[in-house]
Design a binder for these strands. Structure first.
Lengths: 326, 326
DNA sequence: TTGAAAGCGTTACCAG
DNA sequence: CTGGTAACGCTTTCAA
């Protein structure tokens, strides 16, 4: 690769002049011409390492998420990267597959790899671990989707408990009395909050909590599908089910379709995230739609503000989810 | 952040000794002790920019894919990152959302950002553009899932045409004569190859190609769902449909479930990728299962070999897909 | 085994 | 507006 010196030599000016030109300084017209020619001829591109060594930043942000298979994170990341791109930043994305060791490991790498800031959806990290890992690193961090209780940084979340409360209350208002929930791992922040909303709705309606109607498992298709099967074997069948994750929802919907002929009465489903699916189905499916676009955009903005020097108190943005029925 | 000099001062040795220690050289026992203490006390981590500036590499590879929402790429990337991690490399992942400008842009950034190698699933880049962009950059590149005709680098693909030929022939052998296909954009390499397999199977069975039975659209749920609806409005209904992408498959399956009561006769579906779904459905669904794990692993290995100096002829690995029915 | 010194490619400063 | 010089933090060399 050509270096700035090669360009300088070819253009007949000093390296510092090239640098100035590249970084938008004023350079005499005739020099501009020869510099541009030399850069084009040599296909010169500034060495990012050398530049970052000098400037201390490299216009890139890290994104650390549990997995890249869920449509939810895919959408968040897509929107987020659009915002940072506008400011000429780039995204380095890494996922840790809901594996605790890998989560620590990736976080460590991200913090040490020279990014200017990090957007992070934690799965299974304690506040102590977080503080230990980030102690000596000065880049700003924004948490998305999930928080670590006790960690005080900017965060962008949704109103998990509230929207589930609303959805379940809606079912109860319609006359359902046996509402089941199929939800994610008990260790995951969002699953916990959603469970809280479910329990509170039941309790506010004076309905006794029935352990049989609570199924918790990994955030995946199988949990929803098998969860539905399990529920349909109970002595008393639930008449409604809320699924708190997109993959779980798809599993429940698929199972419902398959078993519907054999089920006495109807089972009403409330799902999460897959508004695209729900909008197309003939049988009305209600889903909780998370504002993925806003989550990504606000998280990106928070982070960029910090990178550019904002130094105020940590902010927490709780975004409202929508409940959509077709 | 503490620098190597700080550590040296604290440990009472020279910076070069610290460097040697860090990089696995021999250091006197007593010095090891004080060095370790100093590193821990200062939470010292080598500045990656400075290190890379010196060594010319930074043990990271780039992964550039069309989107991060499809489960296919999610799985490929997950497996691939496992392999590189074993060799202590890290992945920088970027997606371009099937947007041509962004694809060029991201490729450019990736090539200039200092990674040691790149794994790339191109969507819409010509050989000329590829060659132009990579001309002056010396890192190895491995193409996955899709190739750019005319570009000679390592590539890991699946036998798209063959497996679709086999799947469609299977349908024809069963007696189906009206087999429809719902497939991705005509510009995408995999969609083109899969179409070839479809056409060849029909032609080998002496069945006339019927334009009405070919639906092409974006690789998404809606294409499958609406495609199914469109097909069911034809004067002559297809008795089987092959969907050449995971999202399209989910769309078709969902629509089938919804409309099945109103459809005279049965419609058999062959889908792509979502073996998890198919394994759980009671109505048998056939899917083409791509070896995502192998794709990721082999691509990673190819790339690491190149990074470590292998300099042989470009290799193309065509992996076999499996057709699974439950 | 150790450490002084040179240098990676860039930017920042300041004198011209 | 220009260019020489110093410095960023690290690794490498080589002499001690």
């Amino acid at each position: 690769m050509a270096t700035i010196k090669d360009v300088a030599r070819m253009a007949g000016v000093a390296p510092s002049t090239i640098s100035k030109y590249i970084n938008g300084g004023n350079v005499r017209k005739e020099n501009v011409a020869s510099i541009e020619k030399a850069i084009a001829a040599l296909d010169y591109r500034a060495n990012p390492f050398a530049r970052s060594l000098k400037t201390g930043h490299n216009r890139s942000i890290g994104v650390l998420i549990p997995d890249m298979i869920a449509s939810f994170y895919g959408n968040v990341v897509t929107n987020l990267s659009r915002v940072v791109r506008e400011k000429d930043y780039h995204c380095l994305i890494s996922s840790f597959g809901a594996n605790h060791g890998m989560e620590r490991d990736n976080l460590k790498f991200m913090l040490g790899c020279g990014i200017d800031g990090l957007i992070y959806a934690p799965e299974d990290l304690s506040a102590d671990e977080f503080n230990e890992l980030t102690a000596h690193c000065s880049i700003p961090i924004v948490l998305v989707d999930r928080i670590i209780p006790g960690v005080e940084v900017d965060a962008v979340l949704v109103d998990n408990a509230e929207v589930v409360y609303e959805a379940v209350s809606g079912l109860l208002d319609k006359g359902h009395t046996r509402v089941a929930i199929i939800t994610g791992p008990k260790s995951v922040y969002t699953a916990k909050e959603r469970m809280v909303g479910y329990l509170r709705a039941l309790s506010d309606a004076n309905i006794l909590y029935n352990e049989e109607f609570v199924i918790s498992g990994k955030n995946e298709f199988a949990t929803g599908y098998h969860g539905f099967e399990k529920l349909m074997k109970k002595a008393e069948l639930p008449t409604a089910i809320i699924a708190t994750n997109d993959d779980i929802t798809m599993g429940v919907v698929t199972a419902l379709h398959e078993y519907s002929a054999q089920i006495p009465g109807k089972v009403e489903i409330v799902g999460f995230d897959r508004a695209d699916v729900c909008s197309m189905m003939k049988e009305p499916l209600t889903v909780v739609q998370q504002p993925e676009q806003a989550i990504g955009q606000i998280a990106a903005r928070y982070l960029l503000e910090r990178i550019e020097g904002f130094n105020g108190e940590p902010r927490t943005q709780r975004l409202k989810c929508k409940i959509v029925t077709k």
